[in-house]
Protein backbone atom coordinates (compact mmCIF):
# COMPACT_ATOMS: atom_id res chain seq x y z
CA UNK A 1 0.00 0.00 0.00
CA UNK A 2 1.49 3.28 -1.06
CA UNK A 3 1.95 5.78 1.64
CA UNK A 4 1.08 9.36 0.85
CA UNK A 5 2.76 11.96 2.81
CA UNK A 6 0.52 14.90 3.39
CA UNK A 7 2.45 17.99 4.46
CA UNK A 8 -0.41 20.37 3.98
CA UNK A 9 -2.06 19.64 7.24
CA UNK A 10 -0.60 20.58 10.54
CA UNK A 11 -2.33 17.81 12.33
CA UNK A 12 -1.84 14.31 11.16
CA UNK A 13 -4.92 12.88 9.45
CA UNK A 14 -5.09 10.11 11.89
CA UNK A 15 -3.97 9.70 15.42
CA UNK A 16 -2.44 6.43 14.62
CA UNK A 17 0.61 8.09 13.32
CA UNK A 18 2.93 9.21 15.95
CA UNK A 19 4.46 12.56 15.79
CA UNK A 20 8.02 12.79 14.63
CA UNK A 21 10.52 12.77 17.39
CA UNK A 22 10.89 16.14 19.04
CA UNK A 23 7.63 17.46 17.73
CA UNK A 24 5.19 18.86 20.16
CA UNK A 25 1.78 19.67 19.00
CA UNK A 26 1.27 22.22 21.65
CA UNK A 27 4.02 24.48 20.31
CA UNK A 28 2.27 24.67 17.03
CA UNK A 29 -1.29 25.21 18.02
CA UNK A 30 -0.49 27.53 20.80
CA UNK A 31 1.28 29.99 18.56
CA UNK A 32 -1.33 30.05 15.87
CA UNK A 33 -4.20 30.42 18.15
CA UNK A 34 -2.59 32.91 20.49
CA UNK A 35 -1.54 35.65 17.95
CA UNK A 36 -3.97 35.43 15.05
CA UNK A 37 -5.77 38.76 15.66
CA UNK A 38 -2.86 40.90 16.79
CA UNK A 39 -0.61 39.72 13.92
CA UNK A 40 -2.88 41.12 11.23
CA UNK A 41 -3.04 44.41 13.06
CA UNK A 42 0.68 44.75 13.47
CA UNK A 43 1.18 43.72 9.90
CA UNK A 44 -1.02 46.59 8.78
CA UNK A 45 0.84 48.92 11.08
CA UNK A 46 4.10 47.74 9.64
CA UNK A 47 2.83 48.35 6.16
CA UNK A 48 1.80 51.83 7.12
CA UNK A 49 5.17 52.49 8.63
CA UNK A 50 6.96 51.26 5.55
CA UNK A 51 4.68 53.36 3.36
CA UNK A 52 5.68 56.46 5.29
CA UNK A 53 9.30 55.50 5.02
CA UNK A 54 8.92 55.26 1.28
CA UNK A 55 7.05 58.54 1.21
CA UNK A 56 9.83 60.52 2.80
CA UNK A 57 12.71 58.62 1.18
CA UNK A 58 13.20 61.24 -1.60
CA UNK A 59 13.53 63.89 1.03
CA UNK A 60 16.15 61.83 2.82
CA UNK A 61 18.32 61.66 -0.26
CA UNK A 62 17.95 65.37 -0.80
CA UNK A 63 21.07 66.45 1.10
CA UNK A 64 23.08 63.83 -0.70
CA UNK A 65 21.74 65.00 -4.03
CA UNK A 66 22.43 68.59 -3.12
CA UNK A 67 25.99 67.69 -2.22
CA UNK A 68 26.41 65.84 -5.49
CA UNK A 69 25.11 68.83 -7.41
CA UNK A 70 27.42 71.09 -5.52
CA UNK A 71 30.35 68.88 -6.32
CA UNK A 72 29.45 68.59 -9.99
CA UNK A 73 30.07 72.30 -10.43
CA UNK A 74 28.38 75.05 -12.39
CA UNK A 75 29.77 74.18 -15.79
CA UNK A 76 27.79 72.35 -18.39
CA UNK A 77 29.59 69.00 -18.54
CA UNK A 78 28.64 65.39 -18.92
CA UNK A 79 28.66 64.70 -15.15
CA UNK A 80 26.69 67.69 -14.08
CA UNK A 81 24.23 67.18 -16.90
CA UNK A 82 23.92 63.46 -16.05
CA UNK A 83 23.23 64.18 -12.42
CA UNK A 84 20.87 66.92 -13.37
CA UNK A 85 18.98 64.71 -15.79
CA UNK A 86 18.70 62.06 -13.07
CA UNK A 87 17.51 64.65 -10.64
CA UNK A 88 14.89 65.98 -13.02
CA UNK A 89 13.69 62.67 -14.43
CA UNK A 90 13.63 60.54 -11.29
CA UNK A 91 10.91 62.47 -9.43
CA UNK A 92 8.73 62.46 -12.51
CA UNK A 93 9.30 58.76 -13.00
CA UNK A 94 8.65 58.13 -9.35
CA UNK A 95 5.43 60.09 -9.28
CA UNK A 96 4.17 58.48 -12.45
CA UNK A 97 4.75 55.03 -10.94
CA UNK A 98 3.50 56.01 -7.50
CA UNK A 99 0.83 53.31 -7.36
CA UNK A 100 3.30 50.60 -8.20
CA UNK A 101 5.66 51.89 -5.59
CA UNK A 102 3.00 51.85 -2.91
CA UNK A 103 1.42 48.60 -4.06
CA UNK A 104 3.16 46.39 -1.46
CA UNK A 105 1.85 48.67 1.27
CA UNK A 106 -1.77 48.64 0.22
CA UNK A 107 -3.87 47.57 3.18
CA UNK A 108 -5.64 44.25 2.72
CA UNK A 109 -9.27 44.27 1.77
CA UNK A 110 -10.36 43.42 5.27
CA UNK A 111 -8.53 46.37 6.75
CA UNK A 112 -10.77 48.99 8.12
CA UNK A 113 -8.31 51.84 7.57
CA UNK A 114 -8.21 51.52 3.80
CA UNK A 115 -7.61 55.21 3.00
CA UNK A 116 -4.57 55.49 5.16
CA UNK A 117 -2.17 55.56 2.10
CA UNK A 118 -3.36 58.90 0.74
CA UNK A 119 -1.25 60.91 3.07
CA UNK A 120 1.99 59.01 2.44
CA UNK A 121 1.35 59.31 -1.27
CA UNK A 122 0.86 63.07 -1.03
CA UNK A 123 3.98 63.33 1.05
CA UNK A 124 5.83 61.22 -1.49
CA UNK A 125 4.72 63.58 -4.27
CA UNK A 126 5.72 66.59 -2.23
CA UNK A 127 9.11 65.13 -1.50
CA UNK A 128 9.64 64.36 -5.17
CA UNK A 129 8.67 67.88 -6.01
CA UNK A 130 11.33 68.97 -3.57
CA UNK A 131 13.89 66.93 -5.46
CA UNK A 132 12.60 68.35 -8.71
CA UNK A 133 12.85 71.83 -7.30
CA UNK A 134 16.43 71.13 -6.38
CA UNK A 135 17.07 70.09 -9.98
CA UNK A 136 15.34 73.15 -11.33
CA UNK A 137 17.31 75.32 -8.98
CA UNK A 138 20.48 73.74 -10.27
CA UNK A 139 19.30 74.38 -13.82
CA UNK A 140 18.75 77.96 -12.91
CA UNK A 141 22.12 78.35 -11.30
CA UNK A 142 23.72 76.80 -14.36
CA UNK A 143 21.86 79.25 -16.56
CA UNK A 144 19.82 76.62 -18.31
CA UNK A 145 16.46 78.15 -17.52
CA UNK A 146 15.19 80.73 -19.99
CA UNK A 147 14.39 83.35 -17.41
CA UNK A 148 16.18 86.38 -18.82
CA UNK A 149 14.85 88.56 -21.59
CA UNK A 150 17.88 87.62 -23.64
CA UNK A 151 16.66 84.03 -23.75
CA UNK A 152 13.58 85.12 -25.64
CA UNK A 153 15.36 87.68 -27.83
CA UNK A 154 15.40 85.45 -30.87
CA UNK A 155 11.64 85.09 -30.78
CA UNK A 156 11.03 88.79 -30.70
CA UNK A 157 9.77 90.36 -33.87
CA UNK A 158 9.48 93.91 -35.03
CA UNK A 159 7.30 95.31 -37.73
CA UNK A 160 7.91 98.18 -40.03
CA UNK A 161 8.05 101.79 -39.09
CA UNK A 162 4.89 103.74 -39.90
CA UNK A 163 7.03 106.40 -41.55
CA UNK A 164 9.10 105.78 -44.65
CA UNK A 165 12.32 107.70 -45.02
CA UNK A 166 13.70 107.70 -48.53
Amino acid sequence: MPIHLNYTQATPPSKSLSNPPGFTNAALTKKVIGTSASTAESYAKLKGKRAWELAISPAKSLPMNAFMLYMSGGGVQIFSIGILAMLLLNPIKAVSTINNAFAPYTPSASDSTRSSLLLPKLTYIACNILTLALGVYKCHSMGLLPTGSADWLNFETRGYSPEISL
Partner: peptide
Protein backbone atom coordinates in the same frame (compact mmCIF):
# COMPACT_ATOMS: atom_id res chain seq x y z
CA UNK B 1 17.23 93.21 -31.93
CA UNK B 2 19.40 93.29 -28.87
CA UNK B 3 22.59 92.31 -27.23
CA UNK B 4 22.44 89.50 -24.69
CA UNK B 5 24.44 90.16 -21.56
CA UNK B 6 25.98 87.67 -19.18
CA UNK B 7 23.06 87.86 -16.75
CA UNK B 8 20.76 87.15 -19.67
Amino acid sequence: FGKALADR
